[in-house]
């Protein structure tokens, strides 16, 4: 397993990523390591390439060039950029969890079915999937709301369902794109707390795109993107040291 300069294992390693949309460089020689159990915030102005980077790391979109290596504990390394669409889709549903700003919950399904669907797609039998989904919802404070349809839940509750779906499969890495962007500040803070508990708190990695400095500050590490270039990142210890000096 690759190790970064801090000696912690890198669950995802990106090297020399380039991605262009026409004449615009969305990723320009990006190198990044994400460690197991680490939370990483990707910040930057609109159009700086934040979502493109998240999509590339998660295998949603492919870079024009560069390597992305996934090093899951107990598994052989996987070169994400070399996978075709089907195996990449399989990888996303088995190894990763996702929480997007819009939730992307299926409106026809109930809360518990939305969570169970993530397991059923991985061939877990329905009854087992429903049991595990119920437990995941209960852990996030949604006990009693299992049978509610998505339209019957508040924005914060919907994001909790999305978090439950992202972690119910036991994914080692959770990708979040502005997960609190559509919520008021109090609800956003609660959802962020839940997200961190479920991921970093459980030894998993969290990669989060955000515009919000206060949200980013809760992460172990912040990296900044500008015109597709990764600027120097800061670790929480450095930020705290900076604040105290």
């Amino acid at each position: 397993m690759l190790e970064n300069s801090l000696g912690r294992p890198a669950v995802i390693s990106a090297r020399g990523l380039y991605r262009n949309f026409g004449s615009t460089a969305a990723l320009d020689n990006v190198n990044l390591d994400i460690q197991l159990g680490q939370s990483l915030a990707i910040m930057g102005p609109s159009g700086s390439g934040k979502s493109t980077l998240l999509h590339a790391l998660a295998g949603i979109d492919l870079p024009d060039s560069g390597q992305i290596t996934l090093n899951l504990p107990g598994s052989a390394p996987v070169q994400i950029e070399s996978l075709k669409d089907k195996p990449r889709t399989k990888l996303r549903r088995e190894a990763f969890g996702f929480v997007f700003q819009s939730g992307l919950l299926i409106p026809e399904l109930t809360a518990i079915e939305n969570v169970a669907m993530a397991l059923m797609i991985n061939a877990v039998p329905r009854s087992n999937a429903m049991d595990r989904a119920a437990r995941a919802l209960a852990q996030l404070g949604l006990a009693g709301m299992e049978e509610r349809r998505i339209g019957q839940l508040s924005g914060g509750q919907q994001q909790r369902v999305a978090i439950a779906r992202a972690q119910v499969t036991g994914a080692s890495v959770v990708f979040a794109d502005e997960p609190t962007g559509a919520l008021d500040s109090a609800t956003g803070a609660e959802v962020l707390e839940t997200l961190l508990d479920c991921t970093v708190g459980a030894g998993k990695s969290l990669v989060m795109v955000t515009h919000d400095r206060t949200v980013a500050e809760r992460c172990d590490r912040i990296v900044h993107l500008s015109d597709g270039r990764l600027l120097d990142g800061t670790a929480r210890q450095e930020r705290q040291a900076g604040a105290w000096s």
């Binding site: 999509h55 998660a58 949603i60 089907k86 889709t89 399989k90 990888l91 996303r92 549903r93 088995e94 990763f96 996702f98 997007f100 819009s102 992307l104 299926i106 409106p107 669907m117 993530a118 797609i121």
Partner: peptide, 16 residues
């Protein structure tokens, strides 16, 4: 369209 695209991102194949 948005939901289909989104679910595909999450790993649900278009075939499902």
């Amino acid at each position: 369209a948005d939901l289909y695209d989104g679910l595909h991102k999450l790993g649900m194949g278009y075939e499902v």
